[in-house]
Amino acid sequence: MDRTAIVLIEMLSSISTLVIIAIGLAIIFGMMRVINIAHGEFIMLGGYIGVIATQRWGVNFWISILVIAPLVVGLFGVLVERLVIRRLYGRMVDTLLATWGLSLAMIGGVTMIFGNTIEGVSAPFGGVRIGAFSVSGYRLFLILVAVALLLGVLAVLRYTKAGLIARGAMQNPRMAAALGIDPDRVYMATFGVGAALSGLAGGLLAPLTGVIPTMGAAFIAQAFITVIGGGAAIVTGTGLAATLFGSVAKLVEFVSTPVIGDAALLFVALFVLRLLPQGITGRFFRRAS
């Protein structure tokens, strides 16, 4: 019984991690069709900001990871959009390459500033006992955060004016412009929000993983697979894909090792894409968002 509960919690934790690292990318890709290879480095930057703010500037832990990290990375995202992404709209492959360049430059830049060492903060909450086992309270907190993120993004997209404007400008920029909305600004804001969520992901995960300049590579494959596997619908797709991939990876991990679990994640994703090239929501739940 306890064991079942633990397995369930571990699975939820794995799913929530996928949601947290993928949601920023899902927004940028889902709304703008821009694939940001530097996504992992945005997460890395968020992690660094969170850790540095806590350790060196003495800011409260929660403010560092929940406010400062997303804010700084969001502003950085706006800057990147203005300087690079804006010039490449509609040229998907060039965008990929340019953001890959950005990713390398960010790794190099952070290495030059902070050095190639691991830094970290300790996770709050300690352990929570479940029968004979103990799970990290912070992981339970992350599960709640993942749910909140999905519901929050869904609510903003569906029920707010900003979400409506954003969806409209993405679907038909010229019509939106004719109605007095500046699509250019909407793109900028959307990219900024996506970047901010990546920064938040970095801040949230930093207590678990520590931060190092090359950490982005650990997230990027999983984030991409989740977003692509999910398909067109941002929230539903990310949620479903994360659930499928996260549970498979965790179940395989239980019978083997974490790395084999990661590999299983990739194989499931390859099979999903072989069967459903448009992702899960390209075939099912088409009307979801």
Binding site: L104, A105, G108, G109
Partner: peptide
């Protein structure tokens, strides 16, 4: 100068 930084800037 970090090599990654240079390569990234060249690519962009």
């Amino acid at each position: 100068l970090d090599n990654n930084l240079v390569l990234g800037v060249i690519l962009m």
